[in-house]
Amino acid sequence: MKIIHLASFNGNVGDMINHIGFYNNIRKYVTSDITIKQIEIRNYYRSWNEAAFDQNFIDMVNDGDLFVVGGGDFFRIEWDYSLTGTTFNIQNELFDKINIPIVFNAVGVDIIDGNEKNIVKFRTFLENCARKQRCIISVRNDGSYDILKGICTNELMKKILKVPDGGFFTSANYYEHIEIPENKKMIALNITKDRNDEVWGNDADKSYVDFVEELANYISLLLTSNKEYYIVFVPHILSDIEAIYDVLRKIKGVLITTRVSIAPLLNGDITTAEYITDIYRKAYFSICMRYHANISSIAMGTPTIAPIGIDKHIALYKDIGLKNRVVDIRTGKICERLMEKTDELINDYDGFLNENKRVICEMEKECKKYFEQINKLVQDTQNMI
């Protein structure tokens, strides 16, 4: 089976974590005999302008057996220029020329500016997709389904699935990591700064400075509390490096030179994100801000603490029954609350491990039903040929 896969592959380590999980499940529940043609959606962004959703794109899609869009946050409604209000800027008439089965796979939904015209364009596109006989529309379990309920009819919502993010089913080879010393309890730390405005709004600049100070204090306390602890910062995109630098500037030099390292930034398909995922697997616990940093840590069985301030990321933790792990960074006393959460994790380490197992077990049950629908879609199409 030839899969034509439209998604992001070169922009964020988390995207590849997601895709690996999707491919694993296709092989498990549909067929192991697959070839994958990856189409980088960023080439179609107006800012990149390397390609267009035109007849050539349709011809490329129709050369496959299954067209997959996502996962990723591609139902992000914010673009006035777009025919759909999203980066998937395609005419309905062209979209209707796709003659192979279509799966919108665990796509994230966001309404950025509340522009009613963009919402109407997107809803019209979604209704057109739902009318197609061989099209599955699914959104990921991060509150996206509830966002759609606010703008779609009940009839349309019946045709949209809420499914686990593919990152819960990711996998990785084992690597030798020079950034992880032997005989230490390594803590993986992923921090960000690229969505500060979304987290703190108009007060973003000052709030971020305060957050950096609090996080640096926490790291210093954590490392001095136990000589076995060692921190590996794990960047997913370039701006994560900036955030790491901002924090390290606030920490004593002796801790930086003896108790801290930084994992490499591996965008694209250098290791298909497996090197980074393996770091999360080997961590004693993970402290993660990014969406897929949290998910892949849980997938690898590693206990997590989530210092986050994006509503959809909090919604994910609520959906999987682990909201107690969240430290909302939009409120004060971040250092104090992180230390409290760390003490809770250490004192109930086995409990955190068991919670991870429970989550993955539940996600697998939901995932099985979803991929059985994809399998039926593929099989029904083959029977028609």
Rank of each mutant, 00 (worst) to 15 (best):
N347A: 11
G14Q: 02
P264V: 04
L248D: 04
D350Y: 14
D328C: 05
R46Y: 12
D197A: 14
T153S: 15
V254C: 14
G114H: 09
I329W: 12
F53H: 07
L148I: 03
E176C: 09
I360K: 12
L322M: 13
T257E: 14
V107I: 15
K37F: 11
T87S: 07
D278W: 02
I119F: 05
L345P: 08
L94W: 04
C335E: 00
K376A: 12
C335W: 00
D210E: 10
S138D: 05
D380A: 12
A306S: 12
F352E: 05
K162D: 11
Y208G: 11
L248W: 01
N196D: 08
Y370A: 04
A188R: 02
D65A: 06
D146E: 15
N347S: 14
D65P: 04
G321W: 10
N183K: 13
S220Y: 05
I147Q: 03
N92F: 06
T84C: 03
D194N: 13
I180P: 01
L338G: 03
I58R: 14
E242V: 10
V120M: 11
L223W: 08
L221R: 12
I314P: 09
R290E: 03
G70S: 06
G71Q: 08
G301A: 00
C335V: 00
S286Q: 01
S144D: 02
K37P: 08
F352P: 02
E228R: 08
D65K: 05
N128D: 14
Q379P: 00
N183H: 09
Q55C: 06
K28F: 00
N217R: 12
E372L: 14
W79V: 00
I334W: 08
Y349Q: 13
D311M: 06
T224S: 15
D142S: 08
I191E: 11
Y208K: 06
Q373H: 06
K117F: 01
N56C: 04
I374V: 14
Q55I: 15
I98T: 11
G253S: 14
T153W: 09
L156I: 01
N196C: 12
I180M: 14
V109F: 04
P164E: 11
K158F: 05
H236D: 08
A216T: 07
L248Y: 00
N128V: 02
G143W: 10
G150A: 07
F285W: 06
A204N: 14
E179Q: 14
Y208R: 09
